[in-house]
Write a protein that binds this DNA or RNA. Structure first.
Length: 423
RNA sequence: GGAGGCGUCGCCUAGUGGCCUAUGGCGCCCGCCUGCUAAGCGGGUUUGGGAUGAAACCCAUCGCGGGCUCAAAUCCCGCCGCCUCCGCCA
């Protein structure tokens, strides 16, 4: 839910945000109109209810003929109250359907444009020197006995895979390093549910334009999450939090499920784009004032992880058109992919400001004694996809792969992963 | 999956159709009293929306949704959650 005060008092800011995103600004006016209509109907309904209350008390106290007379009037009033209520409900439904589709207000620093219009903030690390034969992650992974996409397809279909041997170990090593890093930074480690109720999925903003990216379990009316951001955002929903001692930070470990409905033919080789993977996700709950600073901190932790596993990467500041409905600003870290000579997104951190908190009713005590929405932010610390960048950037001429020092103790001290014979 | 019980303010709790504008206690907050402490006294203390310069104030809210009724915390139906027991199961 966007801030209704902005809708009422400064709709131009919302229209401007819509234009920056490349979306229809007239949606804002439609929502504002619906809001006004709904509020007028609510006021009328309240007046009728107040009257009904007074009459009800008279009925309770009246006797005989007098009681009959009052009862007659309450019967008439009752019909009016019901009619007013039906009107309010219909108008509220219209209003909410509209207002829930308005995306978060874009941060002033975000540039307009689409997926290709990002700003590169910096490039970090050394790309592997070109020359010699470059194997891609699947060839390397198959050689190491680490990745098996053929049997993944046999068992579950395309975009599924098995991680085997050092592949399975490598994933656990990455995720364990991520959990360790997050815990050291003060995050509470959390293993989350991966199936959530509809209102939680809607509250995090994933049922809007990207609804067909999400798996739904029809028989149980549950959704499979595409990131632990979803259950973590729901974790403190409907609560009034005390943030006086600083942010609440959770590091979620979960399986993630994505339908990849709109990506036929894209990244079909290997495990770059898959239906199921694992991820360690940072999730922060902070005051609205602290959101921008926390966003920088999340980005710094992400970059720390990338540096720890010695990957060359660049940081981009996403353009408005590529933000999700709930994000006000988004930074991605993209690792270099030698086999394709391009960058591949490994992390993504979004500031959702108060957008998710409003929908999920995550609040804190305000200075006036009332409550006010907090801000939520999320950021990737490690995923299965990191294996792709790791194998390709650290490959050696003979098809073996160097293990970065930070991961060695999670791999039994191994410094190199070597090809194995298939059997 | 089956049977039963329960869901009222941060916690406990009263409340079986209207005078409920929901009781009382604990905790917490403010004030008074007090040499200090304990005790005592008075007031406040769900959440959301609206009104106002600020208040008093108005509406909704008794797990959620629907129904019966002029009127629902209370009666009926559905759902959700928790507890106990049975069955099944990794």
């Amino acid at each position: 839910m966007i801030d209704l005060r902005i809708l009422r008092e400064n709709p131009e800011a919302l229209r401007a945000s819509q234009r920056t995103r490349g979306e229809d600004p007239s949606l804002v006016d439609a929502a504002a109109d619906a809001d006004a209509q709904r509020r007028a109907a609510m006021a009328a309904s309240e007046r009728l209810r107040a009257e009904q209350k007074v009459l009800g008390k008279q009925v309770a106290q009246a006797r005989g003929d007098e009681r009959e007379a009052v009862l007659e009037r309450t019967r008439e009033l009752s019909a009016q109250v019901k009619a007013a209520q039906v009107e309010v409900e219909a108008l509220t439904e219209t209003f909410e359907a509209l207002v829930l589709t308005i995306p978060n207000v874009v941060d002033a620093a975000v540039v307009p444009g689409g997926e290709e219009d990002f700003v590169v903030l910096r490039e970090v690390g050394e790309r592997p020197a070109p020359g010699g034969r470059v194997r891609d992650h699947l060839e390397l992974g198959e050689g190491l006995g680490a990745i098996d996409t053929a049997r993944g397809a046999k068992v579950s279909g395309s975009r599924f895979y098995f991680l085997t041997g050092v592949g399975a170990m490598l994933e656990l090593a990455l995720l364990n390093l991520a959990m360790e890093t997050a815990t050291a930074a003060g995050f509470t480690p959390v293993i989350t549910p991966t199936m959530v109720r509809p209102e939680i999925m809607a509250g995090t903003g994933f049922l809007g334009e990207h609804a067909d990216e999400v798996y739904r379990l029809e028989a149980d009316d549950l959704y499979l999450v595409g990131t632990s951001e979803v259950p973590l955002a729901g974790y403190r929903s409907d609560e009034v939090l005390d943030l006086s001692a600083g942010p609440l930070r959770y590091a979620g470990w979960s399986a993630c499920y994505r339908r990849e409905a709109g990506s036929y033919g894209r990244d079909t080789r290997g495990i770059i784009r898959v239906h199921q993977f694992h991820k360690v996700e940072m999730f922060s709950i902070v005051t609205a004032e602290d959101a921008a600073a926390e966003h920088e901190r999340l980005l710094a932790w992400e970059e720390g992880m990338l540096a720890a596993v010695e990957l060359p990467y660049r940081v981009i500041d996403t353009a408005a058109g590529d933000l999700g409905i709930s994000a006000a600003r988004k930074f991605d870290c993209e690792a270099w992919l030698p086999s394709q000579e391009r960058y591949l997104e490994l992390t993504s951190t979004s500031s959702c400001t108060t957008f998710q908190a409003r929908r999920l009713k995550i609040r804190e005590r305000g200075p006036d004694g009332g409550t006010r929405p907090v801000a939520t932010l999320n950021g990737t610390l490690a995923t299965t996809r990191w294996i792709v960048a790791l194998l390709e950037n650290h490959q050696l001429p003979d098809g073996s792969v160097r293990v970065p020092e930070a991961l060695q103790r999670f791999l039994g001290g191994r410094t190199v992963l070597e090809p194995v014979a298939a059997r």
